[in-house]
Write a protein that binds this DNA or RNA. Sequence first.
DNA 1: CATCTGATGCGACTGAGTCGCATTAAGTCA
DNA 2: TGACTTAATGCGACTCAGTCGCATCAGATG
Lengths: 160, 160
Amino acid sequence: MTKASALHRPHLVKRLAAEGIRLTAQRKMLVEIIQDSSDHLDAASLLRLAKKRDSHIHRATVYRTLDLLKRLSLIDELDLMHLEGEKHFYEVRTKSEHFHLACFRCGKIVEHKTPTFELLKKEISKQTGFRINVIRLEVGGECRNCGAQSSNLPRKVGVP
Amino acid sequence: MTKASALHRPHLVKRLAAEGIRLTAQRKMLVEIIQDSSDHLDAASLLRLAKKRDSHIHRATVYRTLDLLKRLSLIDELDLMHLEGEKHFYEVRTKSEHFHLACFRCGKIVEHKTPTFELLKKEISKQTGFRINVIRLEVGGECRNCGAQSSNLPRKVGVP
DNA sequence: CATCTGATGCGACTGAGTCGCATTAAGTCA
DNA sequence: TGACTTAATGCGACTCAGTCGCATCAGATG
């Protein structure tokens, strides 16, 4: 489950400071790990990585920090179609909307982007009057590779 | 959390039979409850309703049946932006794609539909080569009403 | 540097969902 | 219709993600 890119590195720590958020050592560390990760991390993985740097950091701190970053719209929460259990994954929010495709067969996660998605977002606001804070599009199915190879059962969902 | 409509009633029991699925009393009952509900049910609510008819039905049967219906693409699973905990909600899959908007302030769930969403789905298939089994779009924010009334904190996610 | 207040660590707890296994009951066929 | 086969159910123990209350700690501020 590797992220497509970690190119731009918006300095989240600075943005936290700008918000007047108390900058604890733990928060700095967690934010750095999230930013530097090339994967979509879930809470447990984040905790595991954090413990390598400070073995005393606690699960609750990780959850509280993720909550904070979510509320500040600095990160987005993903389900990735619950391909592996009920956990959530996190990624730094970028300016341009993208979404995720999950292959039920091989488990691959692909990030994708198209102007139609941006258009859709604008349209939704206009049509419904919602002020959109979060928009999450997830697609589950069979990637090109897997579709080419066979016609067995998808792993979790789909035609039986 | 009331569903917009329960107008068309695709007879899921018949579709199960058509698939050669063993039609147990429990499955029939659960499918009926899901179909007849005007709400998005979560597993616990479904169990509660089912127990009114057959007090011996077990949690595990509910989860197994939901899994079955998901695999058969007869129902869709929703998060509804985790407005109330981590549970999932379910609805009968209809032919036309719609999606859900959740207001972080008042908790209202709105179903919405626009041709752009259908277009987006086709585009994704074409551009990525994915055979799409499930597509889930969820929007979180502030509904028109709540936005008009105040400018306090959203309930769970968003600007602090 | 002293103070104030919000954040952390901790461990117990909750709630959703899963699993293995003994028992039950659909579907089938004579 | 009744016997048979096999899948589904009920059950309870279990797992795993996430939460909570509270005592302690440490940023920020003057």
